[in-house]
Amino acid sequence: MSKNIRVLVQGTGFAGQGHTAAFRDMGAEVVGIVGRTESVVQQVAKELDIPYAGTDWKQALIDCKPDVVSIGTPGGVHEEPIRQAIEFGCHVFSDKPLTHSGETSKKLYELAIEKNVKTAFASSFRYMPEVQHAKRLVAANTIGEPLEVEYISHFNLERNIPFGWSHRKEDGGGRLNNNFTHKLSIVTSILGEKILSIMGDVRDDLGRAPIVEGVHNFKTRRDFIPEDIDEPSLKWGESNVEWSYTVLAKIESPLTPKPVSVMFKHGGLHPRFNEDHIVIYGSKGAIYVKGHYASGPLYLYNENNEWVEQALPKDIAESIPNVEGDTERNWRNLIKVFLSDIKGEEVAPYQSFKEGAQYQQLIDIIRENDSWVDVSHLQ
């Protein structure tokens, strides 16, 4: 391993550019970037001062000889480049979802084990400061034995966001892939990593979206919403993924002898009335964290039957990376641990392709939506 860990990035949009900055901030050397369109990848490489740019992933692996590859493209195109990188002997950092299906994700996890490469799966909102705070409080028996968790969010997304990968199951789209992965990671980081059982219901409330040219960066896609949505010449793409979900899970926790019940409820297109939140209910109290990804503040329900806001512990506050954006900060937290592990340093456990494959298999089960019992015959 060279003194500086060499990183090759795939993806020129928000994630690819974000991964580049995060790896650099954590001390790695970004030696190349690969994208679909020659003009775009050359422009991004110039703007980010990346020495190598190209559109041929396999050739980039040969030319750049990276220690690590960072995958910042939609999940539907992850499988082949990740497989090639593992075969090449690279460690792999991948954004979620790992792939578009549980079967292909499991194969990549098994290949990584076979080739003895390290992997990181970026369902990384478990590194939010108030998630770490909640984890500490639960572990300290502040609320007694954890009993159940309620996790509610409503995003009220614009229905006419241009048609793209987020609308297609085969491309890694859907709210389970791009919202539930983070939420499940948050809950397991607090309670324990062993998921015992799961069931769910999904719904596509969208149906279709306008097809618009020129959308490149996921974060700026709203800028391309057509001014006249009733324009006769406008073309439409059909959605085939869920925009709302309800998931029930049971999670084993070392903090209690019984499984903890968890309810996840998300409406991607629906407006919120009260704040999005996560609540952990225990035998002696409860913890409420405001925000769809637990951005805070955090409140503790005490022995006086009052919800009292809790200050973020100083050590957690001081550990927050100095950069704008929750996503960007959480990438840095995970990348820091990942790089330390690659260097052979002792690190805390972090999510790898093991969780990436598990999560995708769970999503497949939820999407099957076959947990209903027909009771129409009952009188």
Rank of each mutant, 00 (worst) to 15 (best):
I198G: 01
F273M: 12
A311D: 15
Y359L: 13
G296N: 07
L196N: 10
A53H: 04
H78V: 05
F93R: 02
T12D: 03
P226S: 00
R208K: 15
I161W: 07
W307K: 10
F121R: 08
G32K: 02
R203D: 10
N116S: 12
G16I: 04
G356W: 02
T142P: 02
I320S: 09
L298K: 01
K258C: 06
P313H: 14
K284D: 11
E87H: 10
W331G: 02
D204L: 00
T142K: 13
M199R: 12
D364I: 03
G207H: 06
E29D: 15
V92H: 09
Q358I: 01
M128Y: 01
G285T: 08
I152T: 09
P97Q: 15
S39V: 11
V260F: 08
N177R: 10
G27D: 08
R24I: 05
T327Q: 14
E80L: 10
E145K: 14
N330H: 09
N240A: 01
E328N: 15
S197P: 00
R136G: 06
V44T: 04
E130H: 14
L111K: 13
L111T: 11
K250I: 05
V117M: 12
F23E: 02
D276G: 08
I86L: 11
V77Q: 08
I86V: 12
T73S: 07
R136W: 11
V375P: 04
I82A: 08
S352W: 09
K194H: 13
V149S: 01
V260I: 11
E275G: 10
S340A: 11
K284Q: 13
V40R: 14
L339M: 03
V323P: 05
